[in-house]
Amino acid sequence: MSAPAARREAVDSPPAPTRRRRRLDPALLFIAPAVALVLALFVYPFVYGLILSFQPYGEHEADGALGSYLAFFGDPRERLSIWNTLRLAVPATVIDVGLALPLAYRLRRPVPGQRVITALFVIPLTLGTVLIAEGMLQFFGPAGWVNKTLIAFGLVQQPVQFLHNYLGTLISLLISDFPAVFLLLLGYASSIDPALDRAARVLGASWWQRTWRVTLPMLAPGIAVAAALSFVATFSVFPSAVLVGNPAGETRVIAFAAWQAAYERYDYSEGSAIAIVMGAIELALVGAALSLRAGGYRRMRTEGAR
């Protein structure tokens, strides 16, 4: 790697038209469209939504600026959507990370057929949540292959109700979220220098010690990031909660509540308020997880140095 100074003089970017007018770093012009786009399409709508959420609409107008938030938190059915979402997102994240971790850990050393295996794991990611949920209607249905197999082996007498409930939504989340977690962890795991493991082995460390004291601490940041991104994806569960869940009851998730407010009741103020609440909860939990990781990682590293 070159020194920063060398890098700075390295490339004069291709000419920018305004250069004649004043000597501005042309680099900034290159990045300006991207920043402008994010400001216009992400930051501005967000601020707009925030302002809108404090301008209650219709019957909530009398409650003052906080009317839309009061409407959400004051209604037990609405409030419950937060719990309904967490009840899906947290187990889905924990199970997916728990399954993907040993898999990615083992696959950092290639096994025969590695390329095919990773390609197989990408398929559910490409198909997306809607197709997985739609396909589950047949496969996990009362006359689907899963129930047929269970009955054929005598494991159950009656078909198991996999669909239109909590279980169906959880299964769909597990399937559609697993590939991303796995590939993310695989990326982190394969960037660990195998020499470290070999060194530990030569020095007489057992498998358990090598895993616990060498590999896992190195993987900790990757685990935290994978868990955080997995949570982001599962916390925003929406299509599968409707298609294979019970959106009127146990899987009435917060994204669905926000959509209902904005698109069924045309209360954009409350819709925005719920969206803001959703973003706030999510960012708070992800932030907590990532700061936990920073602390945990430091601790493990210093422990390892001793």
Binding site: P45, F46, A258, S272
Partner: peptide
């Protein structure tokens, strides 16, 4: 700024954006 849209669920900015 360029990372935030990937860290937030699409619904959170999607509803104000659609509005």
């Amino acid at each position: 700024l360029l990372l935030l849209p990937l860290l937030l669920p699409p619904i959170t900015y999607g509803i104000p954006l659609a509005t």
